[in-house]
Amino acid sequence: MRIGELSGRTGVPVPTIKYYVREGLLAPGELTSPNQASYGDAHERRLRLIRALLEVGGLSVANIGEVLVAVDDKQRSTHKLLGAAADLLVPGYTGDGCATLADGDADGAPDAELDADPDVVVARKKVADLIAARDWHVSPDSPQAQALTTALAALSRIGHGGFAEVLDAYATAAEGVARADLAHVGRGPAREDLIEEVVVGIVMGDAMFAALRRMAQVDGSSRAFGTGGAAGPDGLPG
C-alpha cells in the first residue's frame, strides 16, 4: 500500500508517519521508484502499537523507542518483553529502570535523606514483607515496588498510615485481576499485539478497576449505612 493508504487505515497523518521513520520507530517502506514506497501489514501493526504507546500509555518518543527495541529483540523472552513495557507505565518511571520516590534524586535513586526517612523505611519493609509472604517473583527494588513504597509512605505522612491494613486484601484482589489480564494477553499471537494488549490493558484496565471499585464502595455503603436501595445519579442511595 502507499503511504496515503497506510495513513487512512491507521489514522496517523502522513507527516507523522515520515517522522516515525526518521526517528527509527518505523521501518522505511520498500522503494518501488525513486519517489514512491510500498508499505505492508507489518507497518500497519507497528503504527498501531506506536499509537497505543503514545496515546494510551502516554510514553515519550524515546521511551517508545525502548519498547520497540525490546519487541524487535527476538532473544528476549515474553516475560522480559512484557516487563519492559510494564516498567515504563509505572508512575514516576525515569526511563533508566527506576521509579522516582518522592523527594528522591532526579535520577530516581533515593538519596541519603530519603533512606533515613522513617516513613519510607517502614513502607519499604512492608512492601518487602508483602512480596516475601506471597512469594511474588518481584524485586523490592523494582519500579512497581518503589511505586507502592511511595504510596505507603505518603499515607503515613498525611496521618493515614492505618490504611495500609487493607494492603493484603488489595494484594489478593490484584492477583485475581493480574491472572485475568495475563489470560487475555496470552491470546495475542504477535509480539506487537502482546505489547499493545499490555499497554491498553494496564492503562484502561486501571481505569476500569477504579470505576468498579467505586461502584462496589457505593453498593457496600448503601447496604451498610443506607437504605439498601439502588444508588441514584449522585452515587447516593435512591
Rank of each mutant, 00 (worst) to 15 (best):
G4S: 12
L6S: 01
T10E: 03
V14E: 02
I17Q: 00
Y20H: 03
R22L: 05
R22C: 00
A27H: 11
E30V: 15
L31W: 09
S33V: 11
P34E: 11
A37I: 10
D41N: 10
H43S: 15
I50F: 10
R51A: 11
A52Q: 11
L53T: 04
E55S: 14
G58N: 04
S60R: 09
A62R: 13
V67I: 14
L68Y: 02
A70E: 10
V71L: 14
D73Y: 04
R76I: 09
T78H: 13
H79L: 11
H79Q: 15
A84I: 06
A86G: 06
L88V: 04
L89R: 14
L89T: 12
V90I: 15
L101S: 01
D103A: 08
P110G: 00
D111L: 07
E113A: 12
A116N: 09
D117W: 01
V120P: 07
V122N: 00
A123R: 05
R124M: 04
K125N: 13
A128P: 05
D135H: 09
H137F: 05
S142K: 08
L152V: 05
G159D: 03
G161I: 02
F163D: 11
A164E: 07
E165Q: 02
E165G: 01
Y170V: 15
A171H: 07
A174G: 05
E175P: 00
G176W: 03
R179S: 07
L182R: 15
L182G: 08
A183Y: 10
G186M: 11
G188K: 12
P189S: 12
A190C: 07
R191H: 04
R191E: 03
E192A: 15
E192N: 14
E196T: 15
V199W: 02
G201M: 13
G201S: 14
V203N: 10
M204N: 14
G205H: 14
D206W: 04
M208E: 07
L212R: 02
L212Y: 04
Q217L: 12
S221C: 02
S222K: 00
A224G: 05
F225S: 12
T227H: 00
G229C: 03
P233I: 08
L236F: 11
P237G: 07
P237E: 08
